[in-house]
Simulated assay, not measured.
Amino acid sequence: MSDRQAVEQTVHLYVEGMAFANAAALKKAFHPKSSIIGYYQNAIEWLTRDEFIAAILAEEPAPPGTQPFMDIQNVDVEGDAASVKVTDDFAGMRFTDYLSLLKIEGRWVIVSKLYHLHT
């Protein structure tokens, strides 16, 4: 598997983990020290991975068997660093995420998520 494919696989893991409230998938996709940042309900939100997962688990997950919306618009990989722009839906809201990933011990993980909530 190429690095690009492995990065995209991590993005899929993240989006599906979010859609189906799968904490194990989200913990695998995100580094423990990752940050999740953006404006939510007109206030800046700056979360740790575990705070983000708790917020996801507080929402109603997508029904089993549904296909979550995900549109990967850009993937840029340079050595052990990668950047991804992806638009996805969660809890009836549409987000554009800018994900920074790092290859650690042979595995790509999200170290930062900067998001925009569409209105």
Rank of each mutant, 00 (worst) to 15 (best):
I44E: 13
L102H: 06
Q9V: 02
F90E: 02
A6E: 01
F30T: 00
Q5T: 08
P32D: 00
A23R: 14
S112K: 15
Y98N: 09
D88M: 14
V84Y: 00
A24I: 05
I56P: 13
E45S: 15
T119S: 13
S34T: 00
Q5S: 14
K33R: 15
A81G: 05
E16F: 07
R49L: 00
G92W: 05
I72H: 12
A19T: 04
H118D: 06
A21T: 03
E45T: 15
R4C: 04
M18V: 10
E78N: 13
K113D: 01
A29E: 00
L99M: 06
I53H: 00
I56W: 05
I37L: 07
Y115M: 06
F52G: 03
F90I: 03
F52H: 14
V84E: 04
Y115R: 11
M70I: 07
G17V: 04
Y39S: 10
H116M: 06
P61N: 04
N42V: 02
Y40E: 03
Y98Q: 06
I36M: 11
L99P: 01
F69K: 15
S83W: 09
E16D: 12
I53K: 08
D88V: 11
Y40R: 15
S112W: 00
A24L: 11
A81L: 10
A62L: 15
D71Q: 14
W46R: 13
V75R: 07
I53S: 02
Q9K: 15
E8F: 07
V7R: 10
T119V: 07
V86H: 09
K27N: 12
D76M: 13
S2P: 13
A23P: 14
V84K: 10
E51A: 14
A81H: 12
A81Q: 11
V7Q: 03
I110T: 02
T10D: 05
T10A: 08
A25Q: 10
A81D: 08
I36E: 09
S35F: 08
